Amino acid sequence: MTFKLPKFTPPNFHKDFLKDAPNCKTVEIIKDGVAPSNYHAMSIYPEYFKIDGEWILPTQSRMDCVPVVTDDKRVEVVEFRNLRVGDKVVIGRTEDASEGIYMYTKGFKTLNGNKDAFAFRTGRSRETAFSKDYDELYKRLKYDRDHGHIVWVLGPAVVFDYDTRKALSALVENGYVNAIMAGNAMATHDLEGSYLGTALGQNIYTQESVPNGHYNHLDLLNEARRAGSIENLMAEGKIKDGVVKTCIENNVPLILAGSIRDDGPLPPVIADVYKAQDAMRAQTRKATTVICLATTLHTIATGNMTPSYTVRDGKIRPVYIYNVDISEFAVNKLGDRGSLEVTTIVTNVQDFMVHLKNNLIDNE
């Protein structure tokens, strides 16, 4: 069965409470980076703003940011740090249209007459059967390869295993990866796997620790910094395979955000946290499917930047987000933060990646 996007049903703007609602109010910024009192903060859901009698939906959104009304009646969603003097920020903290602000959560809802108010096993845990989720994911990825923007958020565990590195590289080569967001460790250990056959000092085939293996990632980092770039290291013939190499060869953006505990780091790692955030948001703005694997902090950061919807070709569609981890705590953390509606899969990422490669590529 082919995948079909759910149709977005907009609000009925002829209803009295929407038709008779006032225009939203704005206040101009008087100091860069500081919102006015009673500013409105965005959620993950579609929010409409009434401007000159017309309800306007931002085409790009982000939770915990503020809506700015432009002179041509568009609504831009802006981080506090990016507010500038003269920006017109929407004020008001109700979302029921009474202040010209309306949060709408039912656009993609489907009626299910068989759903009970009380039922067992409605949550997600190690006891959950994820076969249906896999089947849905295969269909969504095949659709979004041609019609969307698939963003991957990776922890280093994804590249600790030979088969997993090979599987992810194959997905990159076959168009299932439009961007990767990670930290210094993921790229370092992927490159270490090619350069020395280890990841954090363990053989990527046997998982056995090698003598003085704790030096290996440092040796790789030192070599990359000597070469000046990963591309230069590749040109020297020292990197022959792996996820990073495949991304570079296929022009897939690789956003590496630095952290306080980084070794090295690799030359392309973005040390400025806000520049890294801007680079990540450039990808989440375009994202239609986001897959987060074994990285709690990067997952939460990405989730906070990703709305529940996006606008492509003038149509409103959902953004699908998957959080995959062996830890139930990790997969549930994003939901606990109120970030978004997310499909969680409790499994090790090595099995997950191989399943995807087998079903998306080998079975085509």
Rank of each mutant, 00 (worst) to 15 (best):
R62E: 13
I56Y: 03
R62G: 12
L18R: 09
D116R: 15
S61C: 09
R165W: 07
R225M: 09
L293V: 01
K315M: 12
D20M: 08
G100Q: 05
P10Y: 08
D133G: 04
G197P: 03
A41D: 10
L5E: 13
S308Y: 05
E28P: 02
S339M: 13
K286M: 15
A170V: 06
L18A: 09
K275R: 09
T306P: 06
T306C: 09
Y138D: 06
E173P: 09
I101V: 12
L218I: 09
F120P: 10
M1T: 11
D278A: 14
F160L: 09
V172D: 10
S229W: 08
L141E: 05
F118M: 14
V177D: 06
L266Q: 03
G201I: 00
I321C: 01
F13K: 12
L356N: 05
E341F: 09
T288Y: 02
I326T: 12
L254G: 04
V90D: 08
K245Q: 00
T288F: 01
T306L: 13
D135T: 11
G237V: 04
I230A: 00
K315S: 12
Y134R: 01
M1I: 11
G86H: 00
N174Q: 14
L154W: 07
E341P: 04
F130D: 07
C292G: 02
T206D: 07
D351G: 10
R93S: 11
K73H: 15
L256W: 04
G113L: 13
V153N: 10
L18D: 08
A227M: 12
Y322N: 09
D362H: 09
H217V: 05
V210Y: 00
D219M: 10
E364S: 13
A282P: 04
K275A: 09
K240D: 04
V243D: 04
K4N: 12
K240F: 01
F108P: 10
D336L: 15
L141I: 07
A282E: 15
D219I: 06
N250K: 08
G213K: 01
E208G: 11
A276G: 15
D190V: 00
K4I: 15
A170K: 14
T344W: 01
K88C: 10
H189E: 05
N359P: 01
G264L: 06
A179I: 07
K109T: 13
Q350K: 15
A97V: 03
G183H: 07
G228W: 08
T299F: 03
A330K: 05
N332W: 11
T289R: 02
G228H: 10
N216V: 00
T164Y: 04
A282C: 06
V68D: 02
V159T: 14
I29R: 04
F130S: 08
T302H: 02
M103I: 14
A157Q: 11
K245W: 00
M280I: 14
N222A: 11
S131N: 12
T284C: 06
V151Q: 02
I239V: 15
